[in-house]
Structure formats: structure tokens, C-alpha cells
């Protein structure tokens, strides 16, 4: 049953991911990305990380993707001419894009990671919350600082060009 679910999710994920990369219109890419995210959230769920799955939906889908859509809407006229997809562009991308993960997978299959017995217990929000506020307090604070900086930076970057209308 779980295998079936996982299979469906994988198909969903990769279909979405492929759309996200291959399709020529950015908006379609985004939709593919969204699809892939749903699949990914499902995979996380299968892995027992409910909270992470929800966060993937909430932040990636509800936040990042929407922001990207916003950016696309603001910046890409629908009739904008698409980039040419010539062999000299595809080939190197394919080479690196396939080569590097090939190396990784080869290494992966060559060795094995130490595994501990699978914990079936679901780790809930409470545990994660506790961990965030005890063991990982410092990185947590750092992340919040990072986000603050990112917000301010984003605002600053987006605003600066506004002051230069002829730029």
C-alpha cells in the first residue's frame, strides 16, 4: 500500500519536475514545480515527517511559488519570445546535469550508509518545536536573522531601481 502511494507520488514529483524544467513557458514551469512540490510533500509524509511536508506545502507552494508567480506576472509578458533551445545549449546542460548525479548515484550504490532501526514513531510538531528552542536554538535564531536580512535586502533591492526610473 505504502509502496503504491510512494510510486504515485514519485510519478507526480517527476512529472512536475520535468514540467518545471523542460516546458518553455515560465508559467508552465511554475505549475510543474507546484505539482512536483505536492508530490514531494507526499514523499515527506511517507517518510513520517508530517510537519516538514506541511511546511513544504505552506512555504514552497504557498509562499515561494506564489511569489514567483507574482514575479513572473510582473516581469514576463506572455508573448515574450522564448529562448532558443539549440543543441549547444542542451548538450552541456544534459552532460553536467546527468554526469554529476550519475557520479553521486554511482558512489551511493557503491557504498552503504549506516542505518539504525527505522523508528515508526511519528515525530510531531511538539518535538520539533522543542528541538528548535533547545538544541538548535542558535541556528534557529540565525535563520530568523537571515530571514530578516533577506526581507530587508529584498525590499532594498526592489526599491532601489524604483528610484531610477530611467535606469
Amino acid at each position: 500500500m505504502l509502496d503504491l502511494a510512494l510510486g504515485i507520488l514519485i510519478v507526480l514529483t517527476f512529472a512536475g519536475a520535468t514540467m518545471a524544467v523542460v516546458l518553455k513557458k515560465v508559467f508552465h514551469n511554475l505549475l510543474g514545480f507546484g505539482l512536483s512540490l505536492v508530490g514531494l510533500a507526499g514523499i515527506s509524509l511517507v517518510l513520517g515527517s508530517e510537519f516538514v511536508a506541511l511546511m513544504q506545502l505552506l512555504i514552497f507552494l504557498g509562499g515561494i511559488t506564489v511569489a514567483m508567480v507574482f514575479a513572473v506576472m510582473m516581469s514576463t509578458p506572455r508573448e515574450q519570445s522564448e529562448e532558443p533551445r539549440t543543441a549547444d545549449r542542451v548538450a552541456p546542460a544534459l552532460l553536467v546535469g546527468a554526469g554529476f548525479p550519475a557520479v553521486m548515484i554511482a558512489l551511493l550504490l557503491g557504498g552503504s550508509f549506516p542505518t539504525s532501526p527505522v523508528t515508526e514513531e511519528l515525530f510531531g510538531v511538539r518535538e520539533i518545536g522543542l528541538a528548535l528552542l533547545t538544541t538548535f536554538e542558535l541556528p534557529f535564531e540565525a535563520i530568523s536573522l537571515l530571514l530578516l536580512a533577506a526581507i530587508i535586502g529584498a525590499v532594498a533591492v526592489a526599491r532601489r531601481t524604483r528610484e531610477r526610473p530611467d535606469g
Partner: peptide, 27 residues
Amino acid sequence: VTGQVFALFVIGIAAAEAAVGLSIVLA
């Protein structure tokens, strides 16, 4: 829980990155 926490951190960083990245796109 450690792995999940790190996943959350990655998500947080991704959000930050997207925010800055998109603002750059707009700029």
C-alpha cells in the same frame, strides 16, 4: 528530529533565497 529540523532550516533558507532572488528579478 534532527533531520527534520535541518529540513526546516533548508526551507527557511530557501524562502530567504527566493525573496532576495525574486526581488533581484524584479529589479
